[in-house]
């Protein structure tokens, strides 16, 4: 379980998250939505300790991570997998080396065993036989799927997805959404997805949380967000321009 309490994060006196309270239960598939620049990615990165908050706490399975030393933080990070917005594959390595790196670093598995596990994960994401390719030879959708295979290689408890469908065509975006749902069910992981794509959110989420003005202003099942009476939520869900300053609608 991940419990975020009174989280505050700012950069050079610009407050991005002012007071975030959010609880993510084990096995949840939660989608965090919000406008561009509202701090969704910052929240996701803080969950894995890539950004230190100014104030507040983040508990992962009861362990407070914001004040942990690096050694303990690395121990906690082994419970996580993360798919970055641009996939963030290591461009000097092959697909196999990318996916197998964590196993090579953190386990005593033989090279053959690592290769076998990599092939298994590539099969899961529907990309068998591309082990020897370099990231530069892959399309955007393939990179995301390889990034997902890398995120899953250590059989994590939690997987974080940062804008998984951004920059993809609708067919590939739909394929990625199905992969997220499939991996969530198949491996019984807790999925935390950040997106501003509402169709993705409806497909993936058991629960949707909306971030606005540095706070979680809505949290509930997809059916509830459609019925929300909050103007900002309604505007976001319908895609009207009220969230943009200067285009405030009544």
């Amino acid at each position: 379980m991940i419990e975020i309490r009174k989280l505050k994060i700012s950069f050079n006196s610009h407050v991005v998250l002012s007071h975030v309270d959010l609880t993510i239960e084990n096995g949840d598939s939660i989608v965090i939505i919000g406008g561009s620049g509202c701090g969704k990615t910052v929240l996701l990165r803080s969950i894995i300790g890539l950004i230190k908050p100014d104030a507040g706490t983040i508990r992962v399975n009861g362990e407070e991570i914001t004040r942990m030393d690096r050694k303990d933080l690395f121990r906690i990070r082994k419970k996580f997998g993360m798919l970055f917005q641009g996939a963030a594959l290591f461009d000097s390595m092959t697909v196999e080396e990318n996916i197998g790196l964590a196993l090579k670093e953190h386990t005593d598995l033989s090279a053959d065993e690592i290769q076998k596990r990599v092939q298994e994960k590539l099969n899961v994401v529907g990309l068998p036989g591309i082990e020897e390719k370099k990231p530069a030879e892959l399309s955007g959708g393939m990179k995301k799927r390889v990034g997902l295979a890398r995120a899953l290689i250590m059989d994590p408890e939690f997987v974080l997805f940062d804008e998984p469908t951004t920059g993809l065509d609708p067919v590939m975006a739909d394929a990625i959404n199905h992969l997220i749902i499939e991996t969530h069910r198949k491996f019984n992981i807790t999925s935390i997805v950040v997106t501003h794509d509402m169709s993705s959110a409806y497909q993936i989420a058991d629960r949707i949380a909306m971030l606005h003005d540095g706070r979680i202003i809505f949290s509930g099942p997809p059916s509830a967000i459609k019925k929300s009476e909050l103007t900002i939520v309604k505007q976001f869900v319908k895609g009207s321009g009220g969230l943009i300053h200067g285009f405030e609608s009544s």
């Binding site: 894995i48 890539l50 990070r77 996580f80 290591f90 964590a102 670093e105 250590m154």
Partner: peptide
């Protein structure tokens, strides 16, 4: 950041 996320 990906290295950090992989606990490396």
């Amino acid at each position: 950041d990906a290295l950090e996320a992989l606990a490396i």
